[in-house]
């Protein structure tokens, strides 16, 4: 018995109790989705996940996303299987389910954990030697179709360096990458310098949705050898107003954007040093088909229509057959061998 009247409790127990209370209080203040995700992890680890099925596909999708952010991939996969797959035709849910079912193993030599506040995240290949730099252009929702933590599993299998890019001003990358400073041209220069500093054998670009527009334009200006567009715009007509508002909100002048930058076809036709391009889109998605058609006939451009596919997002159509891997490998192979 200790002399302070606290019985047989070890001297650190009081502090521990306070610590636990703080954890409980902090947990109570978390958003419901995060609290539920933590409960799912606990249930998964104790083999009682079946007792916590999602009560709706919408909520299930949010919780799966939380689990992915927490890197609880096993729990996310099991939770997705437990009840939300096929529960509703909710765009995005199928993509998460398909990605989790076909997810490549993590690469311990190319670790990555996404910080959604960052617009440039570089994952350098650990081995010496020349290899391509892949610039990954996120869409307006700041993801690469799926959360970057998942997408990285596919990209890390390639023998490349990877840089994940976000346009936090949501102006289709026409103002460049904010953290690289300056304007569009300064960002292109900085990305070329990055490739040089890595001793990269070349640059390739891949974009999803609005990121495709950035991949095309910046890809042209950094002399990329290949650009892979996973649906997305090739010209900005209706979205032009959004770009101009975004520039104004950011304290930039919309008048500073050269007119030709709103239409990648014009730029590609005029360029004497253009990358090879693949634009993959759903054959039954009229908007994406029209955007792809805008590049039709340009030398070096290949339009790949997925038969019968109507959604804007194409990754879930590509993953099960291995076509997602094939397109990525095609992209990397556009870099000339040393």
């Amino acid at each position: 018995m200790s002399s302070d009247g606290r019985g047989d409790r070890p001297p650190w127990s009081e502090g521990r109790r306070h610590g636990l209370q703080q954890i409980v209080r902090a947990t109570e203040q978390l958003p419901e989705s995060r609290r539920e995700a933590l409960a799912v992890i606990q249930a998964f680890e104790s083999g009682r996940l079946a007792e916590r099925p999602p009560d709706s596909a919408i909520r299930g999708m949010v919780i799966v996303n939380e689990l992915i952010a927490l890197e609880a991939i096993g729990a996310a996969r099991a939770y997705a299987r437990s009840g939300i797959q096929g529960a509703a035709d909710v765009d995005g849910l199928e993509l998460l389910s398909v990605a989790l079912e076909h997810l490549p193993a993590a690469s311990p030599r190319m670790p990555f954990r996404d910080d959604s506040a960052l617009d440039l995240q570089l994952v350098r290949h650990p081995d010496p030697g020349k290899r391509p730099l892949v610039l990954v252009f996120c869409g307006l929702a700041q993801r690469f179709a799926m959360p970057l933590n998942l997408a990285h599993r596919w990209l890390a299998r390639l023998d490349v360096h990877v840089a994940y890019l976000r346009d936090l001003r949501r102006v289709y990358y026409l103002a460049g990458i904010r953290s690289l400073g300056g304007d569009y041209d300064a960002s292109c220069t900085a990305l070329r310098d990055l490739a040089r500093s890595l001793d990269a054998s070349g640059i390739v670009c891949v974009g999803n949705s609005a990121g495709s527009f950035g991949a095309l334009g910046i890809g042209l200006d950094v002399h990329a050898s290949g650009v892979l567009c996973l649906s997305g715009p090739t010209r900005l007509d209706q979205s032009r107003g959004d770009v101009e508002r975004g520039f104004t909100d950011a304290g930039l002048s919309p008048a500073s954007i050269p007119e030709e930058r709103f239409d990648q076809r014009q730029r590609f036709v005029r360029s004497t040093r253009r990358p090879r391009v693949r634009h993959v889109h759903g054959a039954r998605n009229d908007v994406d088909s029209a955007e792809a058609a805008n590049l039709a006939g340009v030398s070096g451009v290949e339009l790949v229509a997925i038969p019968g596919w109507v959604r804007h997002s194409v990754v879930e159509a590509l993953i099960p057959s291995g076509a997602f891997d094939e397109h990525l490998r095609w992209l990397v192979a556009t870099v000339p061998s040393a």
Binding site: I58, R59, M61, V62, N65, V90, D91, G92, L93, L96, G139, L140, A141, Q142, R143, R170, A210
Partner: peptide, 8 residues
């Protein structure tokens, strides 16, 4: 720029 996951 609000995708289905954001919407959910």
């Amino acid at each position: 720029g609000i995708d289905s996951l954001d919407q959910a």
